[in-house]
Amino acid sequence: MPDTPELNIDRVAELARIALTPEEKAEFSAQLGEVLQHVEQLKKVDVSAVEPTAHAFAVENVWADDVAQEGLPVQEALRNAPAQRDNMILVPKVVE
C-alpha cells in the first residue's frame, strides 16, 4: 500500500464517469483521504500465506440448459427507457 494515500480525484471521477463540481472534488478528496488513512491499518496484517476470499462460500459456475425460454416482451423491456423509437433505445449520435 502506498505510504501516503493519494487519490487523484479528477482521474478517478473520469474512470467512474461521474461529473463532479469543484466543491464536490474538494469535499470528497478530504473525506476519502480520511477513509484511506483508516484502511492503512490493513498493512499491519500478515497476509503472505493467505488466499483471498471473493465469496464467503465456494461458488461454482452454474450452467443452464440450452433451452429457449420466454423473456420479457419488448414493451416491458423498454418500459423504462428514457428515449425510444421503433422498439429501440435512442441515444445521441455515437459516430460522426
Binding site: 490493513l42 496484517v45 493467505v50 488466499e51 476470499t53 464467503a56
Partner: peptide, 14 residues
C-alpha cells in the same frame, strides 16, 4: 494494495 489485500484479510475474518 487495497482490493486484493482486503480479500485476504476477509479470509482471516471468516
Amino acid at each position: 494494495a487495497y482490493y486484493l489485500r482486503a480479500q485476504k484479510v476477509r479470509t482471516l475474518i471468516r
